[in-house]
Computed example of a mutant assay.
Amino acid sequence: MELSLDEVESPMGILLLAAGGGALHGLDFADCAPRFRRSLEARYGAVALRAAADPCGFSSRLKAYLGGDHGALAGIPVEPGGTAFQRRVWAELQRIPPGATRTYGHIAASLGQPSASRAVGLANGRNPICLVIPCHRVVGSGGELTGYSAGIERKRWLLAHEAGARGGSPERLGGAASPGRARER
């Protein structure tokens, strides 16, 4: 399979974006490139990544999101692969609006499987399309920031960035950005 690859600068580091056939197939941080490639190869076997400027307009939308247009990622077609359960979890994550959070238990209950919090957490951790499938919006049962495979500091930055839509002001990664106590809505 051949996919278009672009790199997008962000305050959290470079993001790698893989697209093809009008859909986003992967989005991850450049320092997680081996995981990014493994995820694509697990789904498609051999993958050729060809450099492309703004494939499908997705890079522009990602830049708009990073620039403060928190709705810019909504509706981007995704092709994450995964099991039927993972796809249900990832679809539910896409229903969490920017600036809001949900707990693993809330996601499990919304799927009609209230005892599946741990399975939701595992699916969340295998999300191959960060930001567009917003796994950073899932928090622990007490509102604590937990389990973000690209690092808790990035999760904190993303939540603060999205809180900017409510009047907060995120800082660059490494600063004292904090979304405050994460809230379930």
Score class of each variant (00 low, 15 high):
Met12Thr: 05
Ser39Pro: 00
Gly57Trp: 06
Pro34Met: 07
Gly147Leu: 06
Ala30Lys: 15
Gly175Leu: 06
Pro98Ser: 07
Phe29Lys: 01
Trp157His: 14
Ala64Thr: 02
Val78Cys: 15
Tyr65Ser: 03
Arg43Asp: 02
Pro134Gln: 04
Gly140Ala: 14
Arg185Leu: 12
Ala163Pro: 00
Tyr104Cys: 10
Asp69Met: 05
Gln86Cys: 13
Thr83Glu: 09
Gly142Trp: 00
Leu145Thr: 07
Gly75Met: 10
Ile14Glu: 03
Asn124Asp: 14
Leu40Ser: 10
Pro114Met: 05
Gly81Glu: 09
Val47Pro: 06
Arg137Leu: 10
Val8Cys: 10
Ala46Asp: 07
Ala177Ser: 15
Ala23Thr: 10
Val138Asn: 04
Ala53Leu: 11
Arg172His: 03
Ala150Ser: 14
Ala72Val: 04
Leu15Phe: 12
Glu79His: 08
Ala109Asn: 02
Arg126Pro: 00
Ser149Asp: 04
Gly105Ala: 14
Val8Pro: 02
Ala30Trp: 08
Gly167Asp: 05
Asp6Trp: 06
Ala100Met: 06
Cys32Ser: 15
Arg43His: 08
Thr103Trp: 01
Leu111Asn: 03
Arg166Ala: 13
Ala119Gly: 07
Gln113Gly: 00
His106Met: 10
Arg37Ile: 11
Val120Cys: 06
His136Tyr: 15
Gly147Met: 01
Ser141Ile: 01
Arg88Lys: 14
Gly164Ser: 14
Pro34Asn: 04
Val120Gly: 05
Pro97Lys: 12
Glu162Ser: 05
Val78Gln: 01
Ser110Gln: 08
Ser39Tyr: 02
Ala160Ser: 15
Glu2Gln: 15
Met12Glu: 13
Ile133Lys: 01
Gly180Phe: 07
